[in-house]
Amino acid sequence: MAIRDFLRERFFPHMWCPGCGHGIVLNNMLRAIQTLGMSKNEIAMVSGIGCSSRISGYVDFHTLHTIHGRALAFATGLKMSMPELNVIVPMGDGDALSIGGNHFIHACRRNIAMTALVMNNRIYGMTGGQFSPLSGYGTLATTAPYTNIDHGFDVVDLAISAGATFVARTTTYHAKQMADIIREAIIHDGFSVVEIMTQCPTYFGRKNKLGDASNMMEWMKDITTPVGSKAKEENPDLIERGIFVQKELPEYCSEYNKVIERAMKGRS
């Protein structure tokens, strides 16, 4: 199926700012899905609120555009009622880690098969550039004009310690790697978290004097390194990208069916 067939072209042009990284995420997510050979009917996308969440409007899958922070909770309900669906949940900083932080850690712990894409642009873009739980100490934002004193989450560390069975990180600069990782995440039978470092030139870039979108993408190339690389040993400040965890643990929907079987003791 051609990539364009996955798009709802009637909703274009999209609402993202020039240079926003979210379009690169949309592109490579669709490329990943294309290589899997899935039909549109097999995929459900559940999103919350924010620039990232608008992605669900642009793809011609089953889509639910839900409440801020609650995308994973809605997605959990959907997956339990229609377990055969491949559920993809694109979220921004707020949806995933602030207002929705509680749902995030519990979805990781539960190991329910779905793919959480954390589009980390380190800012609340849609509401005007307020700092997020991923902005990080010392950054500038509309609500931190004299630098942010909140420390940020490390999405990968958090997901691993909360129990996610597939955890990866990539960036919009590394588009090919992004598509490969998203593909692996979707076919993983468990809860998958993919952190995608993406640029918000309008707010994070401008406030923090990081230049235009291409400068920001170059910057993401410079501050990251493949998992386990020698460069990391020499420069511990580098952020690792790649797959951190990929392990098999009992998946929630399958386990739930086993509970029913045990309770029914062979009766139907």
């Binding site: 307020q130 609500t143 004299y146």
Partner: peptide, 20 residues
């Protein structure tokens, strides 16, 4: 506060007043 359109301008101004 937590940002939400169309309220955000109110608290944006106030956070600036606190900061400066």
């Amino acid at each position: 506060a937590y940002p939400i359109t169309p309220q955000t301008h109110i608290v944006e101004a106030l956070s600036e007043y606190c900061a400066d």
